[in-house]
Design a protein around this nucleic acid. Structure first.
Lengths: 114, 114
DNA sequence: CAAATATACATAAATAACTTATGTATTAGC
DNA sequence: GCTAATACATAAGTTATTTATGTATATTTG
């Protein structure tokens, strides 16, 4: 597990990108998928996820669709048109940021080598 | 400029790494150097930096040394032995995290391609 | 079949790392 | 002399999280 400060700020990007690639997902599924894909290195808590999903829905990035499995409800989320745009922007911004960070760290390492 | 959430959590790592490579630096110099190295994409505010420096000093990562340029004081910071260890840990953790994030984003992109 | 665990949602209080605003003082440029 | 840059510092407000708690159904295990 990474120190939590690092993960902060990337949650919306992770969620939007997962939905972009998987079409639709429900909350619990997102937490499990991220845990699985990162070998437990990134674990999204439900206390963080659900408010984020609600906020993305409110701001028009996500649509919801309820599905009943017996008596249990699953709330599926999918990207709106606007959500697709935001997803791309967020992924690009994060990629750019990480490249800048790597440059910042690598450059300094190179300087010390001569 | 990146949205501020992204930069959160990386400030200590940036500062420790800069000090590791440059030996000693003072606060204002750190803000200018980061701005310069990232073409203004990352701008560390003084309100964020000074408390961080104080906190790193308090926790034993940094030593300080005052230098007088005429009447003006500069407070130089440098890594303690423990600070070197922490700097390496933080850089490794950030690098690992960024690789995990890239995998998470790239994997999904690859999945959509077939 | 009872108990524990997993699935699945949700919210609210507390916390941490910032931003924004403000303050002081010296130095440089016009 | 005025403005901007240099150089420090702190405090209030914001925001995204963590931690804690709650509800309910479904599955596994003894």
């Amino acid at each position: 597990m990474y120190s939590s400060e690092l993960i902060k700020g990337t949650l919306k990007t992770i969620v939007l990108n997962l939905l972009k690639e998987n079409g639709k997902m429900y909350g619990y599924q997102i937490t499990q998928r991220v845990k699985e894909l990162t070998n437990g290195k990134i674990q999204i808590t439900e206390g963080a996820l659900y408010p984020t999903l609600h906020s993305l829905e409110k701001s028009g990035e996500l649509d919801t669709q309820k599905e009943y499995m017996g008596k249990r409800v699953r709330k599926y989320y999918s990207l709106t048109k606007q959500g697709h745009v935001t997803a791309n922007q967020k992924v690009n911004e994060l990629t750019d940021f990480m490249n800048t960070m790597k440059f910042l760290l690598d450059l300094e390492a190179r300087t010390s080598n001569g």
